[in-house]
Simulated scan of single mutants.
Amino acid sequence: MKIVLVTGASSGFGEAICQKLVADGFKVIGTARRFDKLKQLQQTLGDAFLPIQLDVTDKSAIDHLNQLIPDNFKPIDVLINNAGLALGLEPAYAADFSDWEMMVNTNVMGLIYLTRQVLPEMVTRNSGYIINIGSIAGTYAYKGGNVYGATKAFVRQFSLNLRTDLAGKAVRVTNLEPGLCGGTEFSNVRFHGDNDKASSVYQDINYITPQDIANTISWLLSMPAHFNVNTMEMMPVAQTPAGLSVAKHV
């Protein structure tokens, strides 16, 4: 039975991924800052789910993560770097720099530090899969996306470079790049708890759901070991990559 480690497992994509993969027969380690949410999820998923409190911005906590994982949840076959966030939607000249720091520390530093801890064992065993949750924001710029988009562009490039470094090794890497997704806390977090503002983002839109993401990851994990998806971009039908804009009299 393969073992999957999912970060950001307390809600949204992470929660749906844990639910789907346990149903698929995997053993899943779910990590997040909110341990109470993980315990609730464990009550639903049972012994196949191991909850561990973890803040990916805390390097010391990542250093000690392996000590918290019992032998029956080792080794980690799949790492799903899902933990991430967007904060604010102000233009770069008006943004809160502390929001930028938090996004970089979570979306970039947390992801690469945990990957660096897990990857060597996969290389030693010559088996494993790393799935990074990127975003179309790493490819397409939008107003207010500044540092969030930059962090996701980093995740995309880091994923491609991992594959390059893993040439000759049977370790797979995929960067999953969703577009507009609802049913998560993403916009609530971005707008610092303004639920009305967050809900307006998805009003009258048939958006991608966390279950769609979980089903996609389930499909990726079902593919044979010789098959690697480097990047996968997805949007709801309601969303398209808009054309370039031009401002007059500038």
Rank of each mutant, 00 (worst) to 15 (best):
G46E: 02
T44G: 09
N230K: 13
A214Q: 07
M109L: 15
R190W: 07
D24V: 05
L221E: 00
Y129F: 15
G14P: 04
W219Q: 12
A61P: 02
L176T: 02
G25A: 06
L68V: 06
N175P: 03
N66A: 14
I29K: 00
A16V: 00
Q203T: 12
Q211E: 15
N230Y: 11
G46D: 01
S218A: 13
A242W: 09
G88N: 06
A86V: 11
E90Y: 04
T151C: 01
Y129S: 09
D196K: 15
G134Y: 06
R125K: 13
G25I: 08
S187E: 14
A150K: 02
S60Q: 15
A94N: 13
C18W: 07
Y93R: 12
I208Q: 13
M223L: 15
Y93T: 13
N72S: 14
I130L: 13
S98W: 04
Y113S: 07
D165Q: 14
F186I: 13
A238V: 10
V6S: 04
A32C: 05
R156D: 12
D212W: 01
V237Y: 14
M122S: 00
D77K: 09
H192V: 05
G179M: 07
V173R: 01
E101R: 13
L45W: 09
K59W: 04
A83F: 10
A238K: 12
N188C: 09
P236V: 06
M1P: 10
D212G: 04
I217G: 01
T57S: 10
A141H: 10
A94E: 15
K197H: 12
Q157W: 09
P70Q: 07
S218L: 09
K152T: 04
A92I: 15
F73R: 02
G46A: 04
Y142T: 11
L38R: 05
F35D: 11
A61Q: 13
S199Q: 15
V250A: 11
N66H: 13
G88F: 08
P236M: 08
F154I: 07
V155P: 00
A9M: 08
N175R: 04
M122E: 01
V4I: 14
T174M: 08
T115N: 11
P75M: 03
K27G: 02
D165G: 12
D196L: 14
K27V: 02
K74E: 03
T106A: 02
V78R: 04
R34W: 05
V171Q: 05
R163I: 10
D204C: 07
I130Y: 04
F97R: 09
I112P: 04
V108D: 02
E233T: 15
N72Y: 13
M103C: 06
K74D: 00
A32K: 03
V147S: 07
T151R: 04
F49M: 06
F227S: 14
V237Q: 12
A16N: 00
N188H: 12
H249F: 12
V4T: 08
N66M: 13
M102P: 02
L114F: 03
H64P: 02
G46R: 02
E90G: 03
I76S: 00
I52M: 05
V173S: 00
V104T: 12
Q42I: 03
S218Q: 07
F97M: 13
